[in-house]
Design a protein around this nucleic acid. Sequence first.
DNA 1: GAGGGTTCGTGACGACTGTCACCCCAAGGC
DNA 2: GCCTTGGGGTGACAGTCGTCACGAACCCTC
Lengths: 238, 238
Amino acid sequence: MKTPYNVDTQNDCSDCSFRAERQFCNMAAPAVKALDTIKFTAVYPKGSVLFVEGEQPRGVFIVCSGRVKLTTSSSEGKTLIVKIAEAGEVLGLSGSILSTAFEVSAETLEPSQINFVRREDFVGFLNAFPEACMHTAQQLSEKYHSAQREIRSLGLSQSTSEKLARLFLDWCARSGEETPNGMRLKVLLTHEEIAQMIGTTRETITRLLSDFKRRKMIEVKGSSMFVQMAALEALVTI
Amino acid sequence: MKTPYNVDTQNDCSDCSFRAERQFCNMAAPAVKALDTIKFTAVYPKGSVLFVEGEQPRGVFIVCSGRVKLTTSSSEGKTLIVKIAEAGEVLGLSGSILSTAFEVSAETLEPSQINFVRREDFVGFLNAFPEACMHTAQQLSEKYHSAQREIRSLGLSQSTSEKLARLFLDWCARSGEETPNGMRLKVLLTHEEIAQMIGTTRETITRLLSDFKRRKMIEVKGSSMFVQMAALEALVTI
DNA sequence: GAGGGTTCGTGACGACTGTCACCCCAAGGC
DNA sequence: GCCTTGGGGTGACAGTCGTCACGAACCCTC
């Protein structure tokens, strides 16, 4: 089924063809059925704000398709991109479980299908289906793991170039495509956004990228970037 | 019961007087009993290493008393203290649940009683007691929350003085004691360790502390520090 | 009380990077 | 065609902070 934003929607978790490969969603039929009855499906255009840092959680958001940018901001207006969430991730889990305010804001980066489950319904669901609770614990473990990696990168890097190298290596590991010219990455973020991912400024990213190009560590063609991983690894002291 | 390290040990979770106030341990009697049968109690002296970053998890560690320093290190030898875990926290959760390597190392800061539960036993326990699974999810949520705070602090601070101010404010919120001279904190860490908590160097901490003292933002008397919270808050741009 | 190991205080110096300022370019709206 | 807007490139400059070096203060053990 096509929607206004040109996204295939999946109204029924029971029929969802991706379910088996999604850690959280991959549950036995009764649990899926129960989830189907409490969830609200919606498709958001690019740039939609799902929730804002500091807000009290109304529930959890399950990303069925698309990508969601998670950010936190200082009162000065400086923004840090904490993570780009992808299909299969559940957002707002910790806030909903602890009833504490969201610590990040969420905004779609592309048209995305998101299933919303109200907090009370979700907690009831977890209590009713131990399997769902285990999957939630796993989901949280993964979040914690990736937060830990972010802390390492922010706290242990000696220089900004090291953080940038680490970011690119991370991207390679996650979605790189091996080619004879090096790992190929689709860069879908602006310099500004890359800067926000590692806590620096746009100018610095521009300078570092030209530096990397000059030193033949990366090559940019359109929205593709070819990365010489060995060269970047040499910059990383962790 | 007293042990060689001068710590009161609590061999039986069922009898533990702290249980009610500890989020994870506060479970119904049957679950506590089950936990009692699979746990191994030990008392470690100060400086004991519970596990090391990169190791495959053998199980989880429940901190019954004492404090545990969680660190991550770069290959250059630079160390970042990710967190100081206190009584009631469960360590090694995410690694045990996902079967992925520990992302931090753990070392006791003082004599500590720690209950160890083998990975298989722990997972079985979670499957057998939905309540334990919920408590685990809550525990993980809290960990995630605190990691998120750390990311904010590391990524959004403009300066090192801001990070230090934020660290002190954090300590005040957690264990400060209100007095007429400002919040009173017990500082049990060396300058070196404080530096490692915010990703800077010992010298910088020394200089910042004298700066803070000169500006009457803090006052140090022995191992106590009196903090003027309003003054520190003015340094924080978040 | 002597001595060795930590911990802390401080100066000099330089590299890195944030800030500000300006320009260029491409895309898209009118 | 013209203008606006957002993204990207670059130079100048100053401030911060890491590094190195050294000495003082403190705290154990013997």
